[in-house]
């Protein structure tokens, strides 16, 4: 299966950008969720996507590893275009890690087994090596002592940090975060954000859907505002927060920064 990674050379390598989204549309039945999205992200960039609920931001990042299918336009991740071809999907998913709102850890496996599962079965890493690597990442997210517990025994914040470690164990080039702090109790948000900030400092390419505007201000290279399935505005955080151009952005920022 690993041989297929070479086949991505067949795709054109003429544009910069590790992720390229070109004229992408998506429908749920007759409902037009994503409308003509265009976005190029360079390696090492940190992108924050925000917007009101139902604006399609989660759907958008889920298209990047093909958890959702787009119907029109192109998505090219690390020179592999996402099509119906399962081999392309597999090779993209190997390079793209994802962290979910509800953690989605595997409850029947210990924390360590959660982290090692994919390296062992997909990357064919020897078990001992995979475990050593997993312990390294668990240390990085500051919970090596929980390695042999089951997810059900951990707090929400701890579970989310395990989920981040699990994604990192695949050594991805890109990390997607789908509202990673939305399901957490307030006192646990910081521990997860700290890990994400640390990760951002390490040069990881990150796309993060979040409502944490503080996080956006500190780490983002660009903030993207989506509404009604469109990218409304795209700007560096300094500009985005102090001087939003679009009326819809202004309204959104007013609403979330009010309290």
């Amino acid at each position: 299966m690993t041989q297929h990674t070479e086949s991505k050379d067949v795709q054109a390598v003429n544009k910069p950008g590790i992720i390229r989204v070109e004229g992408m549309h998506k429908w749920y039945g007759n409902f037009h969720v994503l409308k003509d999205l265009n976005l190029t992200i360079d390696q090492g960039e940190r992108i924050v996507i925000c917007g009101p609920s139902g604006s399609g931001k989660s759907t958008f990042i889920r298209c990047i590893n093909r958890l959702e299918e787009h119907q029109q336009g192109r998505i090219i991740v690390d020179d592999v275009e996402l099509t119906d071809d399962v081999r392309h999907i597999d090779s993209v998913r190997r390079e793209v890690g994802m962290v979910f709102q509800h953690f989605n850890l595997f409850p029947h496996l210990t924390v360590l087994e959660n982290c090692c599962l994919s390296p062992i079965w997909v990357r064919k890493t020897p078990r001992r090596e995979a475990e050593a690597c997993a312990m390294e990442y668990l240390e990085r997210v500051k919970i090596p002592d929980q390695a042999n517990k089951y997810p059900g025994q951990l707090s929400g914040g701890q579970q989310q940090r395990v989920a981040i470690a699990r994604a990192l164990c695949m050594k991805p080039k890109i990390m997607l975060f789908d509202e990673p702090t939305s399901a957490l109790d307030p006192e646990m948000i910081k521990e997860v954000l700290d890990v994400m900030i640390e990760l951002a400092g390490s040069g990881m390419t990150m796309i993060c859907v979040t409502h944490e505007m503080g996080f956006a201000k500190t780490v983002a290279d660009r903030v993207i505002f989506m509404d009604g399935g469109e990218i409304v505005e795209e700007a560096p955080p300094s500009e985005f927060f102090s001087n939003p151009r679009e009326a819809r952005t202004q309204q959104f920022l007013q609403q979330i920064l009010q309290h």
């Binding site: 299966m1 958890l67 994802m98 979910f100 509800h102 989605n104 595997f106 599962l117 699990r166």
Partner: peptide, 12 residues
């Protein structure tokens, strides 16, 4: 979410 997490990790 369990299916999605498994997919996202590249498990076939």
């Amino acid at each position: 979410g369990q299916y999605e997490a498994a997919n996202a990790l590249g498990l076939g």
